[in-house]
Design a binder for these strands. Sequence first.
RNA 1: GCUCACGUGGCGGAACUGGCAGACGCGUACGGCUCAGGACCGUAUGGGGCAACCCGUGGAGGUUCGAGUCCUCUCGUGAGCACCA
Length: 624
Amino acid sequence: MRITAFADRLLHELEGLDWPAGIKLLQRNWIGKSEGAVIDFKIDKHEQKIRVFTTRPDTLYGGTFLVLAPEHPLIDLIVTEEQWPAIREYREKTARKSELERAELTKEKTGVFTGAHAINPANEQKIPIWIADYVLLGYGTGAIGGVPAHDERDLEFAKKFDLPIVEVVQPLSNEPALGFVGEGIAINSPIIDGLTTAKAKKKITKWLEERGKGKGAINYKLRDWLFSRQRYWGEPFPIFWENGRHHSLSESELPLVPPELEDYKPTGTGEPPLAKAKDWIRYSNKATRETNTMPQWAGSCWYYLRFCDPANESRFVGEEAERYWMGGKQAGGVDLYVGGTEHAVLHLLYARFWHKVLFDLGHVSKPEPFQRLVNQGIILGEDNRKMSKRWGNVIDPLDVIAEYGADAFRCYEMFMGPLEQMKPWSMKGVEGLSRFLARVWRLLMDENQAGEWQLSPRVQDVAPEKSQRKTLHATIKKVTEDIESLSFNTAISQMMVFVNAFINAPSVPVSAIRTFLILLSPFAPHIASELWEKMREKFTVTPADLTDQSWPEHDEGLLVEDEVEIIVQVNGKVRDRFRAPLGANEEELKATALGLPKMRELLAGKQIAKVVVVPNKLVNLVTN
RNA sequence: GCUCACGUGGCGGAACUGGCAGACGCGUACGGCUCAGGACCGUAUGGGGCAACCCGUGGAGGUUCGAGUCCUCUCGUGAGCACCA
C-alpha cells in the first residue's frame, strides 16, 4: 500500500491533534522526512549513471568517492574483472548478516573497491566507487556520495581505506573544519564559495538542475506497506486471478468469508495456508482466488468506524452515523482514544493513513481518526517488574473480580496513580478500595438483629449542615474537574474525604447522599445503583433511575469561607498563623502579624527590612 | 550514542498561575470492641531532639521575600530510535 504517497500529510496533519508530544515525535521520526537533492554521477567508461540522495548538496565538491549498498543492482555492471572475487565474497558475507549485526554501530567500517570510477559532476574529477554495508539499499537511492570531511561515517570509511579528504565547509566558530557536520560557509567549491550552507544548497541544486545532473528531492524513511501475509488468520482479499491478471469481486459477492479449514498451519511449500482450500480458491473454471490474507492491522485500521454503526448490513458505516459520531469541529473523529505507547507508530500511523484514504474518497467526514490520544501506563506486577509468566507475577483481573468485585477492581485501577504512569499492582491496595466501598455501604446501611442489611435510620430527609454542604460541593467540584482531566485517582481521594466526613455524623442528609451516589456511579456503578435502589424504597425521587440523573453542579459560593487562616513567615519560614476575615486588606494583615506575641518575641532587636503580604494567604516578615 | 519522560515518607501517590510539602490510600504502632480476628472503630505516624527548634521533594549551584514547582550543571531510572546519507 502506498502509504508513502501520504507521508507529507501524515506528517503535517499531526499538528492539530491533541496527542502526547512524545508520540507525535515518534511518528515524525518514523516518517523521517529529509530534504535535499538527488545527484547523478556518470560512471567512467559506462553509459549508466549512479543516482545518490543527499541532504547536503552543498558539500558536493568534497565528494571524493561513491559508496553503493552491497545489494545495489548496478554493481554487476561496473565491477572490474580483478575486483570480482573480493566483491562477490563481500556481498555473500553481507547477505549472511542479520539486520541486527549489520546495524551494529560499534563495529569498524568495511567495504570493497569495485574497480570502477564515477565523475563528480561539480568538478569533473574521477572518484572511486566502493561498496559497503553501511549504505542501505532501502533508504534513499541505495547509494551515497562520500563526503569524508563533513560526515562522520564517511570520514571513518575514508580513514580506514585511505581515501582523499577535502574540506568544503568552514565552521562559523573556531572548530576544525575536518569532521564538521553543521552549517557553515562553503569553501573550496568554486560555484558556491562564501555562501552559507542554506544558500549554497539552493544555488548548487539549481546549478545541477540546469545541467540535468540532479534536482531537489525529498526522501522519507517511511516505506510502503506490504499488506499481505501467508497465514490463515486474517481477512481474505476480495480478489481473483484470471490469466495472470487480478480482478476485484463485485460488491454483491461481499463480504468474503474465509473457508473453514481443518488444518490451517503453514504449508511448508511457500504457499499460504488458504491454498489448501481447493474448492474455495477455484473461483471459476478460469479464475482462482487470492490466497494471501491481510495483516492484523487491517481490522485495527477501521474498527472504530464500524463501532459507530455495527449493525449496518449495507455499508461499513452509515453516512448519518458516521457524521454523528465522527463529525465535529476538530480534525479528528474519535474524541478520546486511550491506548498504549506500543501502538505509537504502527497502528496509529496505519489507521491515520486509511482514514485519509477514506476521507479523500468522501466516505468519512474528518481527515484524522483520533483527535485526542492518551497513553495509559502499563500496570507492573507486585514486584515492580513487567507482568509475565516468566516472573510468575501476573494478576488475572477475573481472579480479583471474583474476590473483591468489579467495583473494587475498577476503583483500584483508577486510584493507583496517574493514568499515564507506569505503576505496580498491589493486592493491599485493592483491599483498601474494597474497604472504602464497604464504608460507603455502611454510610447508609445498618445490619439489624437478624443480620440483614437495611437502610440506616440515620439517613434522613434533612438539610445538610454548613460544613457538610461545603464538603459536598467541594466533592462535586473536584470529581467533576478530575474526570475532565482524567485524574481519577484524586477524584476517588476526594470521595474518600467525603465519606470520612459523613460516616460519623449523627444524621446523613438524603440530598447529599443522592448527589454523592451520582458522583460515585461512574467509578463504582454496581454499588452505587444498589444503594440508590435501597434509598428509593424509603425516599422516592424523580426520575427514578440513577442512570437518568443529571450530573450535579457545584455552587462556588458555598466553598468560600468568611474567615481564612493567614500564615505568618519570618524570612520565608512559617512561624505562626492567625485567622482573619476574608478580604482583609494588606495593612490590617501586616498590623495583626506584627502584633502577634510570638512575632514580637522573635523579632525583638531585629530590623524589619521588608514585609510581603499576599491577601488571604500569608504575611512574610523579612529581617536583615 | 541520540531523543523523550520521570526522580517527593517504609510503599502507591497529593500539592491550581512559585506561597502551610506529604491530601487520600497502603503499611506500622498503641488503644477499644470481640470467644476469636488477616473484621470493625479510634488515635498516632517524614527524619532528628525532652523541648524551643533543626533538617527534609536524587545531588550541586542559581533566581526570589519565598522553590517540589523557574534556570544551569550533574547523577539515576524507564521508554523509544539506532550507520536514514
